[in-house]
Write a protein that binds this DNA or RNA. Sequence first.
DNA 1: GCCGTTTTCGGCCCGACTGTTTTCAGTCG
Length: 582
Amino acid sequence: MKTPVNKEIASVLKRIAVYKELSGENPFKVRAFENAARSVEMHPEEVAALSDKGMLETLKGVGKGVAEVITGYVRSGRSSELETLRSAFPDTIEELFTVPGMGPKKVRAVYEKLGVSSVGELEYACTENRLVTLEGFGEKTQTKLLKAIEFIRLQGGLHLLSDALGTAEEVIGTLKNSAIRDIEIVAAGSLRRGKTTFKDIDILVVEQDGKNRESLQKTLLSLADENGVIASGDTKISVRRRGLQIDFRIVSPGSFPTALQHFTGSKEHNTILRARAKRMGLKVNEYGIYRGDEPVYVSSEEDLYKTLGLEYIPPELREGDEEVRLSEKGELPDLVKAEDFHGMVHVHSSYSDGSNSIEELARECAALGYSYLCISDHSRSAYYAHGLSEGRLGEQADEVRRVNEALSPFRMFCGIESEILGDGGLDYPDEVLEELDFIIGSVHSNLAMSKEEATERLLRAIENPYLTILGHMSGRLLLSREGYRLDEERILEALQKNGTALEHNCNPLRLDPDWPLLKRAKKMGILVSVNPDAHSIEGFSDMRYGVTMARKGWLEKKDVLNCMTAGEIDEFFKRRKKKTSV
DNA sequence: GCCGTTTTCGGCCCGACTGTTTTCAGTCG
C-alpha cells in the first residue's frame, strides 16, 4: 500500500468535517476536524511517518480521536469513520459545497426535501422553480444559485498568482486614476500573503471621510463584469471581474491598521491572534483593539502586533502555523528582500529556445541592477528546445567571454540546464561538464514514473558531483499538472549531503517546489537558488514571484544562492568544481 | 473533538451581507 501524503490525509479529515456538519453534528467537533486537517496539511514532514511512530498527538489540533482516524487511514488506505458518515448520503453530495452560497444547512435541505444531490440536479431544480417552495429559500436564492453554477461552469475557480496580481494592479490603477479623491487602495488577503493560487482577491479602500461614499460605491460596482455583482453593502462590495472575484472593503483611516491586519488573514492566523488578545483582556476586530469598551490606539500593523506582545509578523508568514509562537520569542527570520538579490540564475538565450541574444540578456540584467547573470540553455537531448550540441556550447562560451569583457564589471557565468535522463544521468560526458561554470539538472521528459523511480532518478543526479543546482524539483504545472511523487526527505538529505543547491523555479506556472519545502530545505541548511527560468528579458520580472515565495518559505538572505555577490558565487562554483577533480 | 498564563471542565474569533424573515439564520471570509 502506498503511504498517503499529507494532503491526502488532510482531505480525509476535511471530508469527515463536511459530513459531520451535514449530519448536524456539534459545530465545535466539526471545527476540530477542520483544524486537524489544516495542521496535517501544513506539517512540513510526512504525517504518515508520525503515525507509524505513534507520535500523531504531538501535532497541534490532533488528539486521541483524530489520531485514531489517521492511524486507521495510514494502515488501511480507508477510513471507517468517513465511510460510515458517507453511507448516509449519495456520493455526489460533496460537489454541492462547491457552489457559492451552498453551505451544510442548505445542502441538507435540498437533499432531504427535494432529493437533490449533485450540481446538475440542483441546476435542474432551480430551473424547475422547485427551490422557492423550501423553507429558508426564495426567489432570489434560486436565481443566485443558478448564476453561481454558471460561474463555476465557466472557469475552474482558481487563478495563478500572476493573474491575480495583474488584475489587482489593474483595478488599483483604475481606482487611483478615477475621479474619486482622498482614498488609499491596498491589496490584502491571500495576495498580500503570497499564496500560489487564488479564489478571490481582497482590496482595502481607505476613505478619508464619507463624503464620496456613493460615487465610490458606484465606481467599485462599475468594475464588475456583466451580471457580476455578488454583494453590495455599505462597507463591503464583491464583484466578479474577468472570472476573478474581488472583495472590496471600505474602511476609515482610524481603523486602517486593524482592518489591514484582519483582511490580510489568514483566518487561522487571526484566530490565534484573537484568542491571544482575549487572554490578555483585549478584543480585536477589524475596527480596532478594545479593552472593555475602551479603544486602544494603534498607529500601524507593527503597533498592533506590539500591543499583543509580539514582534511584527510579515504577511507571508501569517499562515497560522508556528509564526505567532516564534514571534513571541523574537525568533522570526529576517526575510530576504528583492534588493538582496545580486544575480539572475537560469536564463535561456536564443542559442536554445530563448528569444534574446546573450548580449541583450546581459545588458538588461545589468540595467535591472543585478551584477551577474548565469546563463543556462537546454542540453542536447532537449530536441524540442533546440538543445545545445557540444559544438554550439563552445560557441556560446566564446560569446559569453566576449560579452564579459565588454560589460565588465558585470559578470556572466556559463552553464547548462542539463536534462536529467531517464536513468538519472546528466546529458554530456564529464569532460564537457567540466568546462562549465555550473550545471542545473532538470527533468522534462518521461514524467510518468512511480514514486520510487522518480526518487532514484533524482538521487542519482544529485549524487553526480557536477550537479550544482537541482531544477524545478516536482515538475508541477500549477492548475494543470500535478508534480511526480517523490520521497522528499531522501531528496533533501541528498542535497544536504552533497552541498547541492535547490532551485525554486519562479515561473508563475511552476513556483516549484512549493514554499513549505523551501522551509524544510532552509532548516537543513540547503541553499536555495531563486530562478526565473526566463526565456526572454520579459521573463526577468518573474523574480518578483520568486522573492515572495522565498519569503513565504521563511528564507533569509544567507539561505539564497543568488543573494551571493558575483565574487562569492564565483568562489562557490569553483569550490564545487574542485570537488569533482579530486 | 481539542485544549489549558482564569485549565481536566467549559469554552471554542468576529462581523458583514443576504434573503427570508418580522427578529434572525445561513454563508462567507
